[in-house]
């Protein structure tokens, strides 16, 4: 946990610096009231302070339970799922959102989780029907349709 704490603190320190730098050209005070840079300044300041407290705490603490990383198999599943999720965003304009979502479900069920074929197809069909029925037919939402037109 020591490494995680220090890393979280570093990320927050970094974000604080980003906030400070990107809002430095904005007014801190405007007429009667705080300006655009007032809140960013104090949020960043608080972030720096609390990050430091976290680092000090992590260094002083004796016991450090290790981070609960998944095993190789688990890691593979998580990474593949995350990759598949991002692929939805990338492929949706090309293939259509609903079509991509269906492909993602089949990929997740059959490739990543290695489920049986028929229950997987059934789950996918039920989900697709729900999406079409509720979102498209009923609420009239226009999904990106892509080359195939679905």
């Amino acid at each position: 946990m020591k490494a995680a704490d220090i890393l979280s603190a570093c990320v927050m320190l970094f974000l604080a610096v980003v906030v400070l730098i990107s809002t430095r050209h904005l007014p801190y005070w405007a007429d009667f009231a705080p300006g655009s840079a007032f809140s960013p300044f104090w949020v960043a300041a608080a972030s720096i302070l609390v990050s430091c407290v976290l680092v000090v705490g992590a260094l002083r603490r004796q016991s450090h339970p290790p981070i609960d990383w998944p095993d190789r198999q688990g890691l593979r599943r998580v990474l593949l799922t995350a990759g598949g999720l991002w692929a939805i965003v990338v492929l949706a304009p090309v293939l259509g959102l609903v079509a991509t979502a269906v492909l993602f479900m089949l990929f997740l069920l059959l490739v990543v989780l290695r489920r049986n074929l028929w229950p997987s197809l059934l789950t996918t069909a039920v989900t697709a029907a729900l999406i079409y029925g509720v979102f498209s037919a009923w609420l009239g939402i226009a999904f990106p349709t892509g080359l195939l037109g679905i």
């Binding site: 226009a142 990106p144 349709t145 892509g146 037109g149 679905i150």
Partner: peptide, 9 residues
């Protein structure tokens, strides 16, 4: 348009 495409056929 993608919308018409659906109806093209």
């Amino acid at each position: 348009s993608s919308l018409t495409r659906r109806l093209m056929l």
